[in-house]
């Protein structure tokens, strides 16, 4: 067979694509943009710090009985990067791991409160729920502390030049600051920061 006939077939075969399942914990360096590994690393570092902090072991409150664990409200992480980042994914991941750790108690945030409001109004107003089983407002726990923070990035790009060996370089630095503040006093009880640096070099024919 002449190579002229073989070439289109080769082109088709080589331009293949594939889909497969992979380990969600695997590191990801598809692009330099914020990704799953950054989410896992930043959240993991903060959980480690929160769990090991002795300042966050217990807090007295007249309303508490024997369980003196801190009741936490998870607030927002402000995105001050230039990327569109769903920062609630960070707080959700942190809350999941902290809840599993058993160190803290949590109260529902906005989404949960809206659901609770709808449900209580339904129970009390629909006439479909037994009166002895109706839930009512005014019995929720009050949070001791709020967890909130900021995600920032510093980005730098360098175009290709002879000096750089015709490679384009990009550097992104992420700083994630999280703090726990006492709602009564406004005092910051705990604060930590996690940092990440990612660099990318791109030559004429792709990433190096």
């Amino acid at each position: 067979m002449k190579l002229t006939r073989l070439a289109p077939a080769l082109l088709l075969l080589s331009a293949c694509s594939s889909v497969r399942y992979d380990d969600p914990g695997k590191t990801e360096t598809l692009t330099i943009d914020y990704g799953s590994t950054d989410l896992q690393t930043l959240a993991g570092d903060m959980v480690e710090s929160l769990v090991s902090s002795p300042a966050l072991n217990y807090l007295e409150n007249p309303g508490k009985t024997e369980d003196k664990r801190i009741i936490m409200y998870v607030g927002d992480v402000e995105n001050r990067t230039s990327e569109h980042i769903d920062t609630q994914a960070i707080t959700d991941k942190i809350q999941t791991q902290l809840l599993k750790s058993g160190k803290f108690r949590f109260v529902a945030a906005d989404q949960g409160q809206a659901e609770i409001g709808d449900q209580v109004r339904f129970q009390q107003g629909s006439g479909r729920v037994r009166t002895d089983m109706m839930r009512e407002f005014g019995k929720q726990l009050g949070a001791d502390m709020i967890l909130y923070g900021t995600l920032r990035s510093i980005e730098k790009r360098k175009g290709s030049s002879v000096e750089s060996g015709l490679t384009r370089k990009q550097d992104v630095y992420y700083q994630f600051v999280l703090r726990a503040v006492n709602i009564d006093t406004g005092e910051i009880i705990w604060q930590d920061e996690a940092e990440l640096r990612k660099t990318s070099s791109q030559g004429l024919f792709g990433r190096i």
Binding site: K2, L3, T4, L10, L11, S14, A15, D22
Partner: peptide, 27 residues
């Protein structure tokens, strides 16, 4: 020069190789 390879063929083969390198990198 290969006696049977015309310029379009060589271009196609080159493209096929590049596509192979670019699209089928397995982990």
């Amino acid at each position: 020069k290969h006696p049977e390879l015309s310029t379009p063929t060589r271009t196609l083969l080159g493209l096929a190789l590049l596509a192979g390198i670019g699209s089928c990198v397995t982990p």
